[in-house]
Amino acid sequence: MNQILSKEYLSEKVVKLEIHAPWIAKNRRAGHFVIVKIGKTGERIPLTISSSDLEKGTITLIIQKVGVTSSKVANLEIGDKVTDLLGPLGMPANIEYFGTVLCSGGGVGVAPLFPVIKELKNKGNRVLTVLAARSKDLIILEKEIRSLSDEVIIMTDDGSYGQKGLVTKGLEYFINHENIDLSITIGPAVMMKFVSLLTKKHEIPTIASLNSIMVDGTGMCGACRVTVGGQTKFVCVDGPEFNAHEIEWDELLMRLNCYKEEENIANSITLE
């Protein structure tokens, strides 16, 4: 259980791990996440499941090295075990036939977007996808996303690949050329905020999948709380998907920086 069966680098800092977890593989749906903890002294962090293989009893996680814990996970090698792995958690993505769905994935957020697109296609939707990242080396799963999407636009901040510009530029192109029934966005909170502002302007219903700070991931602590439609919700049990137009984005962005100071100290110690 919890053993790493395969490992692949999608970019210098982004790693794909296939982990033996038969129960989670059996019961997970698109949108579900797991809580991962490495070693006795590790912290608990949420990671979205990007796919699973029922026959092999495995789940796939895609991790970008950003902090101490994500680096610990990404540095695991084949044969290593994830010390603690809990899931599948959260509410599964609500996917049915919507018509034309505009998907946007930013950075490592493309990983959790992948199972959503797969499910959207299964239900017969037309899927238009915008993949965005800072630069070419941070664009992941392009081949997989292309094979499932009807059309794909790639945006990079520095123009090193695809078109130069932010995710919203790609979205605007699709919005101007097609009739969009629904928009789904997964990525850094600040990106999703601007996606949400854009789609709100065009009155396109939008779902955002949030990745907030969590401890237990089961509703017990409330670290992940977010204001949606004026009410406090817990991302771990009520989410991670919410109506993007109702999310208090500025509060969410502020809460994500809660432990910035502690994180910077931890990162500097780890780098030493």
């Binding site: 002294t41 101490v68 237990d216 670290a223 406090t232």
Partner: peptide, 29 residues
Amino acid sequence: ENSNGILSSNEYLTRVNLMSAGNSKFDTP
């Protein structure tokens, strides 16, 4: 109430008791 630095007792106690957050050898802040 959702400002930073306002948390539930469950979160505070879980960090300290379960995750040993006060101990510098542990990763949880």
